[in-house]
Nucleic acid binder design. Structure first.
Lengths: 229, 229
DNA sequence: ACAAATTTAGACAGTCTTGTCTAAATCGTC
DNA sequence: GACGATTTAGACAAGACTGTCTAAATTTGT
């Protein structure tokens, strides 16, 4: 019974910071080296603590790994939902607004440190921990994709888009705005902001050609490329 | 100076089969366990040879790994180019033809054993061997994507599609027809044929809404969903 | 059937890693 | 300043893995 400021932390606090730095360092090392290649000594050194402290907070390597994935999933989900809250429900310029949303989603949730790490861990160790990653699937795409779909449904209901199946449209939106980043993602790289904007711009343009309300008269400079040779 | 039948293979042949089975087993184990977790004894056992034979063909673990990636890249590229040769240059029903092409590409090149293994190795170990995977990038996406783009350019030139930038269209085509398979790919799974067909069908429908010649009168049952409540 | 090359099984040294243990040092709080 | 809890450094046993070596067995071509 301490001063009651933080009700649910057994050890006082201040080394909760240590727990955090351990999980952070572990995420980085697990990503770089893979689960088997990750070295507890290295994690401890990178976290700035002794090896024993690592074993003190997390009983063994496997539990540490699970804590890392849980932590990343939680933070990434929070970021994604925060970004979904910025979805343009009543767009002015729907093209620019969707591009902005796509760029925010990429920069704040997918290309940032947490997103990059979580993606890599899922790809690398997903098959080794089926339940853990089933949990991620439910908590992650299982909740975020319908949330995005609901926003697109609302845009369609408001007459800004023509959409048959909002779930399909949401997945295709993500596929389109990330279409040019696939190779970079594959290799674990981080695309530059220019690349993100470029891919989002091209993706949204195509998305609106498919789902836009009509061939709206804004900026329709047609490059009818020699169609009748 | 042997009988000259196979000019560039030092050992006669017949244990070239062994070399193959070693590389094959190594691919499977490297994928399952990662580079650090892969065990040479296990690779030898899975290949049906002794450990010494593994060290005999490939000097050490790292060279074995490199041989695996080179081998997979080569075979996957061959498969992709073979499939690109079936691209519908003069489509009858362009929708059905593009769906067929997308399904072939997925089933024969991306979802098959080689494709799955190569993808996983790139994701898992890409950062550890920059030159090796730079080579893959050049030989793989660097050559296949322009080849697909050229086919789309031809369709546009023939008046079957309306495309500004064939490179962008090609990448977006791939993004769209794979939009519903992302989660499965992430976790290293193999989508069922139904899922592949479904994703391709939805993807091509959207692709043609964006790049199709016109709102062609075939099957336009509009679900105008309560737009004016 | 013979000879050369290849493969095999097993042992081996050296290295690395995990997880535990202990005693000293440090930190936070009263 | 003192007390309790936490952290630290280092040693340690047990096990796993790589890469080498040797001698016997097997395959291959002629």
């Amino acid at each position: 019974m301490k001063s009651g400021v933080s009700p649910d932390t057994f050890p006082p606090r201040g080394h909760e910071a240590k727990r955090l730095s351990i999980v952070d360092a572990a995420a980085a090392v697990f990503c770089r080296e893979g689960f088997a290649g990750a070295n507890i000594d290295l994690i401890a050194a990178e976290a700035g603590v002794s090896r024993q402290t690592v074993y003190n907070h997390h009983r063994d390597k496997e539990r540490l790994f699970i804590a890392v994935v849980r932590d990343l999933t939680e933070r990434c989900n929070a970021g994604i939902f925060a970004t979904i809250a910025t979805f343009p429900d009543q767009p002015g310029d729907i093209g620019a607004d969707l591009i902005g949303f796509a760029v925010r989603l990429n920069q704040n949730c997918i290309c940032n440190r947490d997103g990059k790490f979580l993606r890599k861990l899922i790809q690398t160790e997903g098959e080794r921990y089926p339940e853990l990653f089933a949990e991620w699937r439910e908590q992650g795409p299982g909740r975020t994709w319908p949330a995005i779909a609901a926003r697109f449904a609302r845009l369609a209901y408001g007459g800004h888009l023509v959409i048959d199946d909002p779930d399909v449209a949401a997945r295709q939106f993500l596929g389109l705005v990330n279409a040019e980043l696939q190779t970079t993602f594959m290799l674990g790289g981080t695309p530059s902001e220019d690349e993100v904007v470029q891919s989002a711009t091209n993706g949204v343009r195509t998305f609106l050609r498919a789902f836009g309300k009509r061939p709206s008269p804004t900026a329709m400079k047609k490059h009818t490329a020699l169609a009748n040779a």
